[in-house]
Write a protein that binds this DNA or RNA. Structure first.
Lengths: 350, 350
DNA sequence: TTGTACGCGTTATCAA
DNA sequence: TTGATAACGCGTACAA
């Protein structure tokens, strides 16, 4: 366990000043080319490594991006994180990650850690429970940009990255109606969160615009997990009359629900048409294949971090738009096709 | 954008020395209780936050754990990361994450970043390409513990966390044989990696122990992706005679392969029995449900980080065992049950 | 129980 | 083009 080499060691070795060493290693223009060469060779040979703490301490900057997600083990968030890490890494930033596990108190604790770690920027997707943004004010007060994605909320100083959930849900519901469904159930998550509230609105407006009644009893609140899908299916089977269409707010839950219904003897899509949300791998595996909304997680991550980097390095100019909408699309598969359409036809993008 | 409050500011405010402030905030025993109380109140009121860099610089310790994974968007690695984050967070450590994207050069670059970031410990699952551990020597030389999990390699100073891949594959293959399969194909990944090499061995030994021939042509090398599953299925369909059993080294690939075979008119498990690896969600969704090996990702993450923490904080004593084996198990589902066994029976654990 | 003084390794500033 | 010096904020040996 040898001692670390510092720029002083190199300076002594080369009979130069530490200043020059520092400059050379940072490729400062005012250092002689030959000197630079000598220094970088010596540094490599001596096994020098820069001390980021000292540098951060001095520069008051960490080159670190913080991230708070509800859960790390979700296909959607994995995709987002993969996108973020890719860009952050390319741009020379470290990524610190923590999960709120859908609780407010963890989210608050995570925010504190991120703050103490002096992240240069923060990317957040809110937990189910979050109903106040107080724990993010500390960042905003210090000019540290905060960006919300997917599970967002309005804040005058923060950019939101989302898809048009209302429109996507509207399209999905309309598609069900066009397939002849007249009694459509919607399985949703925590309505505090924009994503679920907006999808509910889209569902509702589509019904109304097509002169179908909207009834509260057709909206099932759920945790949207695999387990919750089974429970929802049981609730649906107890309904009288049975619905003929189901729009679920994520694929995990939709797939589990679909399978439970099938096991109970319901024919999909003939008796009930089903639509999910996210385009997870499982939507392409379940039989019949699940109609769903394609939600570009990796792309969302890349956009989010790019915008964050702009704000971090920006000359202070605010980006005019406070909300960035990414394109999403309805992918029609067999689980919702009740017409004469061949079930073998290729995926159709709307 | 106010200026940061430091212990000096608090000291001035309370007419005490910075030393006392520092001690009080770190709950040092030799500070008067009342003084402590006053100080922590003032700190809270003034909006003080500790500067981790200065502290790290001084303490030569970062409270940060580094992690290098092949891909962030994989169900298995997501589960591992979730487990690691949970424990690390509880113990007050930050987590820095990067992905190698299965390439050596990225893994090397990531290792350098982790080293410069002065992580206190490192968790690694190796990329497909990695064939040298040189980039980890810098850590080991400085006494920074490195732990490999899942995709591991032998190193006299590093602990490995794995499951018994050979045994798991042996069990899976034996199960196929017991179900009457005599011509079994194995779809594997990059054989440089222990996980795939060991599973191949388990497959091979099971065949030999049951007096079945082992033929190279029955081993298909693959990227184990969704796409690769389709390709593998096509290769299998071109075989003559057709095999009657398939053991695949992950679920994503197994499911995709199974579906492609079904579409080509093969009956699963009657014509071909199929077994996967990992127990991903898709294995419970595909029809017929996939027999697979349960691979406890979250648990593996938790164990890995616990062992790492012990080594980081250990009094230098080495842990006797160099390899920690976690329990895995064969989950028998319909995709491999060819006997008279009811396909509706519950999952069977072996 | 409290305080003084210094060092951790780097970079910004000013001067040469 | 190079160097001397101070400062970033904290923790600790030593002194009181």
């Amino acid at each position: 366990m040898e001692k670390d080499i510092t720029i002083y060691d190199i300076a002594r070795e080369l009979e130069l000043s530490p200043t020059t060493i520092s400059r050379a290693l940072n490729d400062h223009p005012s250092v002689n080319k030959n000197t630079k060469q000598r220094i970088s060779e010596a540094a490599a040979q001596m096994g020098y490594r820069s001390n980021l703490f000292a540098s951060n301490l001095r520069k008051q900057r960490t080159n670190t991006i913080g991230m708070i997600v509800p859960r790390l083990d979700s296909p959607f968030h994995s995709a987002v994180i993969a996108g973020i890490e890719k860009i952050a890494n390319e741009e020379g930033y470290n990524l610190i990650i923590s999960q709120s596990l859908e609780t407010l108190h963890k989210e608050v604790a995570n925010a504190k850690t991120m703050f103490d770690s002096r992240v240069d920027g923060l990317l957040v997707s809110l937990s189910f429970e979050t109903d106040s943004l107080e724990h993010f004010e500390q960042f905003i007060n210090r000019g540290i940009p905060v960006i919300f994605y997917d599970r967002v909320t309005e804040h005058k100083n923060c950019t939101n990255i989302i898809i048009d959930n209302l429109q996507a849900a509207y399209k999905a519901t309309t598609h069900l109606i066009e397939q002849g469904c007249t009694n459509i159930v919607h399985i949703t998550g925590n309505l505090k969160r924009n994503v679920y509230a907006d999808r509910l609105k889209g569902y509702k407006y589509a019904l109304i615009d097509h002169n179908l009644p909207f009834t509260e009893s057709n909206v099932l609140k759920s945790q949207l997990t695999e387990e919750a899908g089974k429970l929802a299916a049981e609730q649906i089977l107890a309904m009288n009359p049975l619905p003929d269409g189901i729009f679920v707010s994520n694929d995990t839950c939709a797939v589990s629900c679909l399978r439970t219904l099938k096991q109970a003897g319901i024919s999909i899509p003939r008796d009930m048409a089903v639509i999910g949300f996210n385009n997870d791998l499982t939507s392409r595996v379940v039989e019949p294949n699940l109609t769903t909304i394609n939600y570009p997680g990796q792309e969302m991550g890349e956009v989010a971090v790019r915008v964050l980097l702009m704000q971090m390095n920006g000359t202070g100019e605010k980006i005019p738009s406070n909300t960035i909408n990414l394109r999403s699309e309805l992918i029609i598969r067999e689980s919702s096709l009740r017409g004469k359409a061949s079930p073998k036809k290729k995926d159709i993008l709307l």
